[in-house]
Nucleic acid binder design. Structure first.
Lengths: 250, 250
DNA sequence: ACCACTTAGTTGTAAAATACAACTAACTTA
DNA sequence: TAAGTTAGTTGTATTTTACAACTAAGTGGT
């Protein structure tokens, strides 16, 4: 019976996914945080074949029974590894080819997450696989990664650095209350260069994505600093120009 | 025999993709061009179930035998539909959930292509499916689309408009030789607003991604205009600020 | 009590970039 | 040769930035 004579209903009744060759499909995460004044990324050690014992980005196969969509799958993986429930999460890029996984043609949806380092209870749980933060700046300290995860990681770093130039993203790398100096410090850490204090503050003020926490200050052996938080319900702010604007970014 | 006692080699020898439930995986394209002073997108009519007879974005399943990677799959689809071999092509975003395809959990890697309208020989070929350009500005003229392609299309339009604010992308919507006025016109068409001529030219000059075609001019019933082409091997240029810079973009 | 020290936050100003508009240039057509 | 049209440049008031110095508000030592 020729295919195109069937009704759509009959077509679907006869359709069996397993009749076709389909690529393997997974979700992987590049999870960033700032610790000790440096940008860090979370890596885990593989507990199973292939690449057993090698470091890689957290991730894995989609659970077609429980994951409503790709974002849900990524959130689930993130929560399993870090305990964080409400991170900044966006899709990074898809990767797929015949050789990245020895099991065959495979694809992955790479995600990109920002979390505050005070939020984390690393879960060394299922499979007794190790999880550890690695500094991104010290490229030499990052171990060889399984699959094409080195490429994915580099893509994630590049994307983060690029978006930090013109968005409010770094606020998600800080705890719920922070000072403007904290925020400036994070920008500088990620960008690898200093930014002007007054221009920085003007930009933040006009972006209008922070709220002053009334009466709350960071105390120390110096002038107390006003604490701020992310305005709730606030989306990422895109500035009109890159910060410190005399440099071209890729 | 417990899984984790196997060597990697033995593990792979025993591994059969068909033992697992895997989502369907496809590649879809949002192909833009500028015709008659308006931004257009290419749609095709489905020749097969599901959604037979409905309009959708060009695309389809990955061919695991012939497609080396995702980009190759997207390029193949593009070439099949338009005959264009060297478009501007970048990955847009992945989409995946349990309901977008009636055949089951499915994912797609959406791509985003820019081509010059003089480059196109629409291929109504295999499957006798119609292919047609639709104006993006006249939202009412775009028919209902199969799957979640309306969402993908809107994501593509948003991304294009956004990137045009601060990149040299629109040059790819023009033929190999064009005038600065042509280019400015394309920017204005995509952005939906006018830009200042002298500021525009300064930006283009400093971006340094065009070459003057020596001695070549567009003639007409007025002053001849210098023709330019894309500097070859030139990547997309990212400007420091959005064009016309007094407007915030999402 | 007061002064040194440190970080927070503001202010001043020269230089650079932009927006807006008018100008000149070079061709065709009547 | 004058009108019409589009190409391309120039001038200038206004805005924005970069840089640096300044004031503010606490702690801690003497």
């Amino acid at each position: 019976m020729p295919h195109n004579r069937l009704s759509e209903q009959a077509f679907l009744a006869n359709y069996n996914v397993h009749d076709f060759d389909v690529p393997l499909t997974s979700v992987d995460l590049v999870i960033f945080t700032v610790r000790d004044g440096a940008l860090h990324v979370l890596l885990v050690k593989r507990a199973e074949h292939p690449f057993k014992g090698k470091w890689c980005l957290p991730g894995g196969f989609i659970n077609m029974q429980t994951d409503a969509d790709l974002d849900a799958a990524a959130l689930r993986k993130l929560h399993e590894k870090t305990g964080v429930k409400a991170p900044y999460l966006e899709q990074l890029q898809g990767f797929g080819n015949a050789t990245r996984d020895p099991r065959g043609w495979s694809t992955t949806f790479a995600y990109f997450a920002l979390i505050a380092s005070d939020n984390i209870a690393l879960n060394h749980g299922s499979g007794a696989d190790a999880a550890q933060w690695f500094s991104v700046d010290a490229a030499a300290q990052i171990p060889p990664l399984a699959f094409d995860h080195a490429t994915i990681l580099q893509t994630g770093i590049k994307r983060l650095r690029n978006k930090v130039e013109y968005t409010s993203l770094p606020a998600h790398l800080l705890p719920a209350a922070f000072t403007l100096s904290d925020l400036q410090q994070v920008y500088q850490t990620v960008l690898g260069r200093d930014v002007d204090k007054s221009a920085f503050r003007k930009r933040i003020r006009e972006g209008n994505f922070l709220i002053e926490l009334p009466g709350q200050f960071r105390l120390g052996s110096n002038r107390p600093a006003q604490l701020y938080g992310l305005r709730k319900g606030q989306d990422t702010v895109y500035f009109n120009r890159i910060i410190g604007g005399d440099k071209n970014v890729e």
